[in-house]
């Protein structure tokens, strides 16, 4: 279970999170929607210790992580895997080294078993024979995003965080990714938090959604509840869908 309790975060004079409070249940697919710059990515980065909140509490299961040190985050990072908005693959290292970044201590033989499985999960099993020869720049943007997802899956984290997974992808690939998110969450029994501004796919994939504006959650509920919501911003998102 993940819980944000009145979290505030500013960058200089710019207030990004203004009392963010939300609870995400274990095993659910949770979408966070909102316009750009409203603090959605910032929220995710707090969970893996890339950012520290100015005030408030953040709970990951039984740990309150808002004042954790880098060393203490080691365990949290094994639990939470973040898939970045930009694929963030290491260009200077080959695909094998990229994939195994999170599982370096694993014996090679075992890696050879889990890697093809992860690649299969993201629909890229064909690339397996070439992982020692190819480098990230030789992949298409969509392929890079899927490989980045495979990389995050390999250490088998319980909680998956997706930062704008379909931004910059065409509709077909976007649908693919959303299906992946759903199937991975269900088949591998994981909690997924997805930051997105794709309302259509969110309604189709999520168990619950939150709408964020100005650093706060302004609407929360199941897809059905959201579609019937009276909140102004939610309605405007839904209106855009109709066009």
């Amino acid at each position: 279970m993940i819980r944000f309790k009145d979290v505030k975060k500013s960058f200089g004079t710019k207030e990004v999170l203004r009392g963010m409070s939300v609870e995400i249940k274990t095993g659910e697919v949770f979408f966070v929607l909102g316009c750009s710059g409203t603090g959605k990515s910032v929220m995710l980065k707090h969970l893996v210790g890339l950012l520290e909140p100015d005030s408030g509490e953040i709970w990951v299961d039984d740990d309150e992580i808002s004042r954790f040190t880098e060393a203490q985050f080691e365990n949290i990072r094994k639990k939470c895997g973040l898939v970045f908005q930009l694929p963030a693959l290491v260009d200077s290292r080959n695909l094998y080294e990229n994939l195994t970044l999170g599982i370096r201590q694993m014996p090679f033989a075992q890696q050879q078993i889990v890697i093809p499985k992860a690649l299969q999960d993201v629909g890229m099993e064909k690339i397996f024979p070439e992982i020692f020869d190819r480098y990230p720049p030789s992949l298409s943007y969509g392929e890079q995003k899927r490989l980045a997802l495979a990389r995050t899956l390999l250490p088998d984290p319980e909680i998956l965080l997706y930062d704008e997974p379909t931004t910059g992808l065409d509709n077909k690939n976007a649908l693919l990714i959303h299906d992946l998110i759903k199937s991975i969450s269900k088949h591998r029994n994981k909690t997924s938090i997805v930051v997105s501004h794709d309302m259509r796919n969110a309604l189709a994939t999520a168990d619950r959604l939150a709408v964020v504006d100005a650093g706060r959650v302004i609407d929360l509920g199941t897809p059905d509840e959201i579609m019937a919501s009276k909140v102004e911003l939610t309605r405007s998102f839904l209106e855009d869908l109709r066009e």
């Binding site: 990072r77 895997g81 973040l82 970045f84 999170g102 990389r151």
Partner: peptide, 8 residues
């Protein structure tokens, strides 16, 4: 950042 999140 990505590398940090993977424990390296």
């Amino acid at each position: 950042q990505a590398v940090r999140c993977l424990g390296i």
